[in-house]
């Protein structure tokens, strides 16, 4: 399918409505996530930028066509490929971030386990203080009541 052919054709309502809806949705969700502080600022900027670009193309579909002519891109597959590469890079970046986070979590968990053991050894907890935080599901009725509880 060639974009040049489509330039001649009139862009139908559905062709406009669908990307527009998608762009608006992404934009709204991004803003909402930032508002609820669920998204860190560095990723927020990335997604805001992406949704603004998407929104711009959705509102002015001709923009995409001019751009493709400007870049000398005629085939729709090329456009798809460029978009796909961009998304791949973004996902790759997130994988790196996730790996780093997992590494941090591991180190923190290991330190916590070591410090907790040391704390219990140096200062055995008095009385039957229940562990804070979410306990594993089936610990409640287990035989470990007499064992030193951790906090």
């Amino acid at each position: 399918m060639m974009l040049a052919q489509e330039t001649a054709r009139k862009i139908t309502f559905m062709q406009r409505a669908f990307p527009l809806a998608a762009a608006v949705l992404i934009f709204v969700v991004t803003v909402e996530l930032i508002r609820r502080r669920k998204l860190r600022e560095e990723y927020a900027m990335l997604w805001v930028l992406a949704s603004v670009v998407l929104l711009a193309f959705a509102i002015f579909p001709r923009l995409l066509l001019y751009l493709s002519e400007l870049l000398g891109v005629f085939y729709l597959t090329t456009v798809v490929l460029i978009a796909f590469s961009f998304l791949s890079l973004m996902v790759l970046h997130l994988s790196v971030v996730a790996s780093r986070s997992a590494d941090d979590v591991r180190q923190i968990a290991q330190r916590l386990a070591l410090l907790e053991e040391r704390l219990e050894r140096l200062a055995p907890p008095a009385g039957g203080a229940e562990p804070q935080g979410p306990a594993p599901p089936d610990r409640a009725g287990s035989a470990g009541e007499a064992a030193a509880p951790e906090s």
Binding site: Q110, A113, P136, D138, R139, G144
Partner: peptide
């Protein structure tokens, strides 16, 4: 998620409890 730590404590050995599952590698390294 079971009573592994409690059972081990009954034997009077040192128990290090990781707050989340790290996999064997993470446990051994601890």
């Amino acid at each position: 998620t079971d009573a592994t730590a409690e059972v081990a404590r009954r034997f009077g050995v040192t128990v290090l409890r990781l707050p989340c599952n790290l996999g064997v590698g993470g446990a051994v390294q601890t």
